[in-house]
Design a protein around this nucleic acid. Structure first.
Lengths: 133, 133
DNA sequence: TATGGGGGTTCCAGTCACGGGAAGGTCAAG
DNA sequence: CTTGACCTTCCCGTGACTGGAACCCCCATA
């Protein structure tokens, strides 16, 4: 399989797939003409990585997840720990964004949004504590 | 005021303040020895930027907000529009993170987390749609 | 007067996960 | 033989900083 076909099937841009090879996440073969020759196993890995990325895992997390995936003697506890740490990061980020949303919603609500210059948003930014994040 | 004092009062790292000068967000004076000499107005701007950043506004948004803040003939509608667009971005990000959280929570919950290799997290990543984000 | 320490300065490189685009080789169809 | 779609590598840019090197400045103390 050539890269465009793999990109289509995995849903990842070709550029991204080349990048994943460059950083050693996948190691496709090469045809005699120099083109990358992807096996089904490469495609599966890419789909795996794509799903992990869509769950917000970092590239390094993906590397670890792939290694665990391929290690038949893994302990599920290791996978769970990795995913749990990631979940914590997501929840922290969620809390941060929710605080921003709360403050911003309040400010936007308080602003008349007309032609006059008076604006509680700007006043809030100029004087208030803005956000507890 | 020297940079360390401004950093202390604004809560921003000195490095960040230098960066903000470099990209033209602030223009502190210079003493004869080459040190940056911050006025109160510079400190106020930095505090303003810091609060806007803590609400998630991008640097370019901060530049616009500062311009509006200093324009006594602004229309509050312009500020509200800017903040509203930002609020939408935040809400989109929130939805994305919540979807991740939901999927991840489910997967982590389903995983025994013991010494055996069977792991629904890995199976999910290998086969499932993972996340609709 | 030397020196030591705690300011300050610039500039360069790295982060993360790619994306854009240039310059050029390869392949199948007409 | 040419066209056009593929493929390759290489390098630069993104956002918003952060770390570090190498160097200057100022004051106090021995």
């Amino acid at each position: 399989m050539n890269i465009t076909e793999v990109a289509r099937q995995s849903g990842l841009p070709a550029k991204t797939i080349r990048y994943y090879e460059e950083i050693g996440l996948i190691r496709p073969l090469r045809s005699s003409n120099g083109y990358r020759a992807f096996r089904d196993s490469d495609l599966h890995k890419l789909a795996f990585i794509g799903r992990a990325r869509s769950l917000g895992f970092s590239i390094e997390d993906c590397r670890s997840l792939l290694a665990l995936y391929e290690d038949k003697d893994r302990a599920s506890a290791d996978v769970k720990a990795l995913a749990g740490r990631h979940l914590e990061r997501i929840e922290a980020k969620l809390a941060e964004l929710q605080a921003m949303q709360a403050t911003l919603t309040q400010l936007v609500h308080a602003c008349a949004g007309d032609a006059r210059p008076d604006c509680p948003i700007l006043t809030g930014l100029a004087t208030g504590p803005a956000c507890c994040a």
